[in-house]
Simulated assay, not measured.
Amino acid sequence: MIIYSAHTDQDLITLLRRGDHDAFTEIYKRYWSVLYLHARHMLRQEDQARDVVQEVFTAMWNKHAQFELTISLNAYLYKAVRNTILNIIRHGKVQENYLADLGDFIDQEKVQTDELVRYNDLKRLIEREILNMPPKMREIFEMSRKEGLSHAEIGERLGISDLTVKKQVSKAVTMLRKKFKIPLATLIILLRILP
């Protein structure tokens, strides 16, 4: 009788590749709780965290015959959870909690690889939306955000009224809020930490 709990992760992966469902069950038991806690911490939603972990394990079983690791099983599973969550974010299914946590992370300067990757992904998404704005709106918004110019300074530089500048900045912020479904305070934090 095989005692699966006594096997190393590598032994379990070898058995998994052969289609050993008990080896898969042992991996599941070994890692489900910590992955769930990790996902819940990132998402702040229990049901969604459960779904993410379930999706990761389902994908693992579905490709068990071709399953190859170049990193530890632990690192692979954490990375898979992170990537699944990033896909959810890209599709607009995560709202304020994740973004607020990201702002807190930047404020606390806890630079760790996974968080930095998530930050960079979110930054790229926001930058892409800014690039998709109408040209005049984008120009005004970037002068406000990147150069830190006041509405009056932008108006003077572009030969338009302060009110026009204010309306364009307001429209740009509204577009970003709608796209990412986040409150104004969170968006301001994100725009402040973007270069």
Rank of each mutant, 00 (worst) to 15 (best):
L12C: 08
M175I: 04
G159P: 05
I140S: 11
L194Q: 08
E147L: 10
I27A: 04
I13W: 02
M137T: 15
H91K: 15
T186L: 05
V169G: 06
L184G: 04
K171S: 14
L184V: 03
R118T: 12
A75Y: 09
R192K: 07
Q45R: 12
I154T: 03
M42K: 10
E55D: 14
L12T: 02
D22M: 04
L12A: 02
L194C: 07
K93G: 11
E68F: 02
E109V: 03
Q48H: 12
L176I: 07
S170T: 14
H64S: 09
Y28K: 07
R90T: 02
V169M: 05
I182W: 00
N83V: 01
R82D: 02
I88V: 00
S72H: 03
I182M: 06
E142N: 11
I189T: 13
R138M: 15
A152H: 08
T25R: 11
A23T: 03
Q112L: 13
G92Y: 07
G19H: 05
H151T: 12
K166L: 14
L16K: 00
I2L: 12
L176R: 00
K123F: 13
L131N: 14
Q112G: 12
A100K: 06
I189P: 00
K178V: 03
E156G: 03
V34P: 02
P135A: 14
S144V: 03
I189K: 15
I2W: 08
T113Y: 14
R40E: 15
I154C: 05
G148R: 09
V111N: 10
H151R: 11
F57R: 02
P195Q: 11
A152P: 00
V111S: 08
L99P: 00
F141W: 09
V94A: 14
I140E: 08
K179E: 09
V169E: 07
I106N: 03
E129L: 05
D11R: 08
R82M: 01
L149Y: 12
Q48F: 05
A75T: 15
S33A: 10
L69I: 04
D22P: 00
E147K: 14
A65F: 06
E109S: 04
K166Y: 14
H151S: 13
Q112A: 14
L12K: 01
V34N: 09
D20V: 02
T164N: 10
L12E: 01
L158D: 07
Q112T: 13
K63Y: 05
Q112F: 04
W32I: 08
L73A: 02
I130V: 15
P195A: 09
R18S: 15
G92E: 06
D11F: 00
A59N: 15
